[in-house]
Design a protein around this nucleic acid. Structure first.
Lengths: 154, 154
DNA sequence: ACGAGAAGGTTGACGTCTCCACCTCCTCCT
DNA sequence: AGGAGGAGGTGGAGACGTCAACCTTCTCGT
């Protein structure tokens, strides 16, 4: 016979639904601004952010996949769209014939440099302005704990 | 002249990226199981959950939109897909000629009753098993604070 | 050497989400 | 009464994400 499942406690229910809802609100709000004010989607931003911070402005696609924590197919599709828009450029890889580099273009750099200050400001306005310093630390710790336990890496 | 923006502090950066990453991991893991084991997508679940818990098994679409916190177009598309699969049924609304009800079908109820225990178990396994009771409370409070401040409602 | 299998990446199909235009019906002002 | 504007809901276009199949190139054991 079936065991009755251990349903979530009320506070667990609040934490779970709350986390989902908070995430959606934050991402959609921040994304809406970036899209309408700077022409960048929510998916464009992290790609440009990673590429703009590495020396040489370029990364092996697999490296990018890892730092983003995305599936390789997702990265491939996203890069294709961004290359079509001129934000990125593909470069072939001499060391490994299977591989490829992707590089941020001047247009891509200009786009993220324009958007970044507003994006940071939005994250503050939407999230950190409402939390105590202790809550910020706690949120970081909770996230990192969970990521460490369930991340498919390693 | 431009002010240098107030960049995120290191712990804020960790909290922000961590939250995004944690969310993606949790949702994709839980969703993968639901899809492959029970044929329900991550989007199907909350719809069925809400409808299965209200008296009469039916809701005005606008009500559903509000409890889910989704945009109305998103709801409309999602309902259309689920109706096509036989999980839900549309009913016309007598009180208001513009409106409509959506109702969970026996197939829909069977689907969520099959999936729910495993879903709860997954949420535990992925999230709550790794957190202290204090962290769970804190996560609920953080979420609710942020939602309360930025939610478009009211 | 060479073949098997793995690694790096792409692609197509399909489900999902947003934006926007639109339709119908209701409300409320005058 | 009769519009005007709003509310409830739909639908198409296009961006996004996943899955699975696939291609090419590399690696490594024998």
């Amino acid at each position: 016979m079936d065991m009755e499942p251990r349903w979530l406690t009320p506070v667990e229910e609040r934490a779970w639904r709350g986390m989902l809802r908070m995430h959606d609100l934050l991402v959609s709000e921040a994304g809406r601004v970036m899209q309408s004010e700077y022409g960048l989607s929510g998916a464009d931003y992290p790609v440009l952010a990673e590429l703009s911070r590495v020396p040489g402005d370029r990364l092996r696609i697999l490296e990018l996949t890892k730092v983003l924590g995305w599936e390789k197919s997702r990265v491939s599709h996203q890069l294709a769209r961004m290359i079509k828009r001129g934000l990125l450029a593909r470069e072939e890889c001499v060391e490994d014939g299977r591989g490829a580099y992707v590089m941020i273009t001047p247009a891509g750099r200009a786009a993220i440099e324009a958007a970044a200050p507003r994006h940071v400001e939005d994250v503050r306005r939407l999230l950190f302005d409402h939390l105590t310093p202790g809550q910020v630390v706690m949120l970081a710790e909770i996230s990192e704990t969970v990521i460490g336990k369930i991340s498919p890496d390693r």
